[in-house]
């Protein structure tokens, strides 16, 4: 397999914690294939200050692509930079996080370079038949073991499936990519980001997640009960699609096939039926606790501890006991 470019997870202003498991994947890839990897920090003019923090993970180079035009890196521009940096570094494969950013950018690069792409990679392993990968299909009802045609590919990596990278002794070189040498596409104008209040840990990285569904009724109840319980545990809050659809919770909290994937130490599901689409995003959690007033709710089939009860009674009591 060819050398790998790793697109650090970024919002343009800074790199994001999801980069850690991505580097874990890259180390694994390098160990299994003997190939090198480079890390690309892409973003606005300040992104370069972070280069130092990425020199200790065994990358051959840390490449910095900083430009005011990448402050809000839209997919067309980020893909153009990835493509050019792959040319500059000689990396023929590319990996990023399976996040809204990675999912937006990576397939674009795959098409530009005519590469096969694997979405949501959970595992990789060298076998007698070459490098094989695992990825979920049908909302995680099936796990496919796959191989790409050829030596080069694009990979979006499921963050919860890889641990953080190990530090190594040798430090990586830092190299600048001059964004001015390429023409960035101009068809997309970034207008705004309406971000949720960021007072809790990142949902995908939190060690405790308290999630709720439709029966939370309204945004105020959701915040009071689930937010209250999460805060007592230092955790993050998640939601089902039904809760988001009915305006009880903001979209960035949706866990599931089409939302975020989480795998915390502890996942508490309150008033969550346990649909296959929801399970797709949380069933790799270490311990699952379910609170549901229907003894036959499917969530109990995956829960380590289940309580058949009304969440409106139980959660305040739990909050009380966990104070």
């Amino acid at each position: 397999m060819s050398d790998l470019l790793v697109l650090a997870e970024t919002d343009g202003a800074q790199t994001l914690p999801g980069t850690q498991p991505l580097l874990g994947f890259a180390q694994r890839y390098a160990a299994e294939t003997g190939a090198d990897f480079d890390v690309l920090l892409l973003g606005g003019t300040e992104i370069g200050v972070e280069a130092e923090a990425y020199r200790q993970f065994g990358a051959r180079r840390v490449v910095v692509a900083a430009s005011p035009d990448l402050q809000h890196p839209t997919a067309d521009r980020a893909a153009a930079v990835c493509e050019a940096v792959m040319r500059q570094t000689g990396c023929q494969s590319l990996a990023g996080l399976s996040s809204s950013f990675g999912r937006d950018v990576l397939p674009r690069v795959a098409a530009r370079r005519d590469l096969p792409m694997l979405s949501d990679v959970m595992r990789l392993e060298k076998t007698g038949d070459g490098l094989i990968f695992q990825r979920p299909m049908y909302a995680g009802s099936l796990i496919a073991t796959v191989r790409i045609e050829g030596e080069d590919g694009v990979f979006s990596v499921r963050g919860t499936a890889f641990g953080p990278p190990e530090s190594v002794e040798k430090t990586s070189e830092v190299e600048a990519f001059d964004v001015a040498t390429i023409t960035l596409p101009g068809g997309v104008t970034w207008i705004s980001l309406e971000a949720g209040a960021n007072k809790r840990p990142d949902l995908t990285m939190a060690s405790v997640v308290v999630s709720g569904g439709r029966p939370l009724r309204d945004a105020e109840t959701f915040e009071r009960l689930l937010g209250g319980l999460a805060d007592r545990l230092g955790g993050a809050v998640g939601a089902t699609r039904a809760a988001v659809d009915s305006g009880i919770a903001p979209n960035e909290l949706q866990v599931g096939q089409t939302g975020k994937t989480v795998a915390p130490q502890l996942y508490i599901a309150a008033g969550v039926s346990g649909s296959i689409q929801h399970l797709a995003g949380m069933k790799d959690s270490k311990v699952i606790v379910a609170i549901n007033n229907d003894p036959d709710a499917p969530i109990f089939e995956v829960a380590d501890y289940g309580m058949v009860a009304d969440l409106n009674d139980v959660i305040p009591q739990l909050m009380d006991r966990l104070n």
Partner: peptide
């Protein structure tokens, strides 16, 4: 375009249902 070959598909490891807890203190 260059593609992906599926070698095999399998069901993910099953989580088994745990136990029911009746008491809030125990759950806490």
């Amino acid at each position: 375009a260059a593609g992906v070959a599926i070698i095999k598909m399998e069901a993910p490891p099953r989580r088994s249902a745990g136990r029911r807890v009746q008491d809030v203190d125990e759950l806490a």
